[in-house]
């Protein structure tokens, strides 16, 4: 029986990684997890989708590592893909004010009339000061077209990125 390219996109994949302690993540962990997800998803789905997973995982895991409130805690990466959607969730320990900052940033992105203009303005503004970070979430919405949301179950902050795959398959 021949398996066609279309058949391959009926594949369902779900993965969950829980890694701790954060203080031990001295290498490029976000790159490692993102590159593997890119390869795994790319084995079944078009590259334009696997590359989206690569960027989301890189940005969210990197944010989680850099912003964790407890270097002895864990981060959790959950990835799910089927014909309908690609969903990626990253969880880390955060203070309530960190959650509020993330929630507020996501709300600003979600209510923006033109996320691309917001991305352009933010890049230019942050470039003046050569500021690190601060672009990841906007990028995921403006560039990769993900819907973002944040949940807080103290002390764990979870950021979810979701995209419907209908138009991409």
């Amino acid at each position: 029986m021949t398996v066609t390219e279309k058949d391959l996109t009926n594949t369902c994949i779900s993965t969950r990684y829980e890694l701790s302690p954060v203080r031990n993540f001295i290498g490029d962990l976000s790159g490692l997890l993102a590159s593997f997800a890119d390869e795994l998803i790319g084995a079944f789905f078009p590259r334009i989708i696997s590359k989206k997973a690569n960027i989301v995982i890189t940005e969210l895991v990197n944010n989680a590592i850099v912003n964790t409130a407890d270097e002895h805690s864990k981060i959790v990466l959950e990835t799910g893909i089927d014909r309908e959607s690609l969903v990626i969730r990253v969880t880390n320990v955060a203070a309530p004010e960190q959650y509020e900052a993330v929630r507020s940033r996501i709300e600003r992105i979600s209510t923006s009339d033109d996320p691309r203009k917001l991305l352009a303005a933010t890049i230019r503004e942050r470039r003046k000061e050569r500021l690190r970070g601060g672009l990841g979430l906007i990028r995921l919405a403006a560039e990769n077209k993900f819907e973002l949301s944040a949940m807080y179950d103290a002390p764990y902050l979870t950021v979810e990125s979701r995209i419907a795959l209908g138009g991409l398959l």
Partner: peptide
Amino acid sequence: EDDDWQQETLPILLNVD
């Protein structure tokens, strides 16, 4: 042609606006 960052963000970086 099939790369989000090159299609969406690269024009911003090149300042084509």
